[in-house]
Amino acid sequence: MAKKILIADDEPNIVTALEFLLGRAGYTTQVARNGEEALAAIAADVPDLVLLDIMMPVKSGYEVCRRIREVPEWRHIKVVMLSAKGRDAEVAKGLAMGADLYVTKPFSTRELLGQIQALLGV
């Protein structure tokens, strides 16, 4: 069965690129445009992995990540943070919030795909 990935980002072009990329790699994708939508989407259909932008409207990626780690049934979800903020402090904060991986934008699509596949154990 195909693994499910939730893409949470408010930049439509980046979402388009990620949807295309992951779809080609055989994953099922869902899209959320802000933090709140992301949490709703997770509640409706628990994904295996979330690609989480940090600077999103309504609820930031940090908050979404913390929330995911608070709910026991969601503990197993892998979280990959995507952010244009690349300072050490921000990376550390993201990991402290419970992210499995922190990827700085812009990223190499091939590398990102490789890392996602490693996380999902393929």
């Binding site: 930049e11 072009n13 980046i14 690129a17 990620l18 690349g86 812009p106």
Partner: peptide, 10 residues
């Protein structure tokens, strides 16, 4: 970085 991300990805 935000526009660069799209450009590089595509």
């Amino acid at each position: 970085r935000t526009p660069l991300t799209s450009i590089r990805a595509f």
